[in-house]
Design a binder for these strands. Structure first.
Length: 259
DNA sequence: CTGGGGAAGGGGCCC
DNA sequence: AGGGCCCCTTCCCCA
């Protein structure tokens, strides 16, 4: 029986187990297996109106077939899709709940004509393309003359193609943003701000359907799926749909008798 | 056991 | 270059 989402304890007694978090702070110890992203179809459907289409679900079972030919450099079909292309093209997520503040491209028509030679992503301006190319490893990894990333993290084995990307990553080691209330440290200021909401109880993101409020936009987005009759993530084996990919994942591992 | 919420991590893009 | 924000994803916990 689904838990009612109408009842909410806004100031629950539940406390974050930070000691536990600290214990799993090693960013390299747990690299969970990635699952096929329930991603929007690329291309024509960039409209934000398609965010919660009642008839549209993400049948991850067909994703390998859909995406496999795209990149010859991605041999394992169910492997992680290119998150960069995902983010740049995922205007899907722009939505009824985000108050128009998303970074959706203004037009569903792909007017971008500046294409990255490495990964084939398109951009609307040369500047945008240049910025992308700073970090793009692309299919052939031409970022450095040796064909490898040029900037290595001294704290871990990760490599980056730009100093900026490396600096960004290093913040995850140095954790310069510290909560003055509890002392927990974060890599980004906005992560800290989100954390501070756990202290203040601020919930700026409200569900238009049930008035439930969330401190995190992504959590609201996940919540909105619960209002949808047809969930976003579909099991390729039994066609059952789920509101979260993690639930689909769980279902695939344990619950689906068809797989 | 399952669905859902809370919290957090991290890469990418825009300004 | 750096900050801010976006999005996706994951893990944990609870009902």
């Amino acid at each position: 029986m689904p838990r009612s989402f109408l009842v909410k304890k806004y100031f629950t007694s539940k406390k974050p187990n930070y000691s536990e978090l600290e214990s799993q702070a090693d960013p390299f110890s747990a690299v969970p297996e990635r699952y096929p992203l329930a991603e929007l179809p690329t291309g024509e459907n960039g409209s934000s109106a398609a965010y919660y289409p009642t008839g549209l679900v993400w049948n991850v079972g067909i994703l390998p077939a859909l995406y496999a030919p795209v990149s010859p450099s991605t041999p394992s079909p169910p492997g992680p899709l290119d998150l960069s292309s995902q983010s740049s093209s995922s205007s899907s997520s722009s939505s009824e709940e985000d108050e128009g503040r998303t970074s959706d491209p203004p037009s569903p028509e792909p007017a971008d004509c500046f294409q990255c030679a490495r990964c084939r992503k398109s951009y609307s301006s040369p500047a945008a393309l240049s910025r992308h190319q700073l970090t793009c490893a692309g299919a052939d990894a031409r970022a450095s003359p040796a064909g490898r990333s040029a900037f290595h993290c001294k704290h871990c084995p990760k490599e980056y193609n730009s100093l900026g990307a490396l600096k960004m990553h290093i913040r995850s080691h140095t954790l310069p943003c510290v909560c003055t209330t509890c002392g927990k440290a974060f890599s980004r200021p906005w992560l800290l701000r989100g954390h501070i909401r756990t202290h203040t109880g601020e919930r700026p993101f409200s569900c238009p359907h049930c008035n439930r409020a969330f401190a995190d936009r992504s959590n609201l987005r996940a919540h909105l799926q619960t209002h949808s009759e047809v969930k976003k993530y579909q099991c390729g084996a039994c066609s059952r749909t789920f509101s979260r990919m993690s639930l689909l994942h769980k279902h695939s591992l344990t619950g689906c008798s068809s797989s």
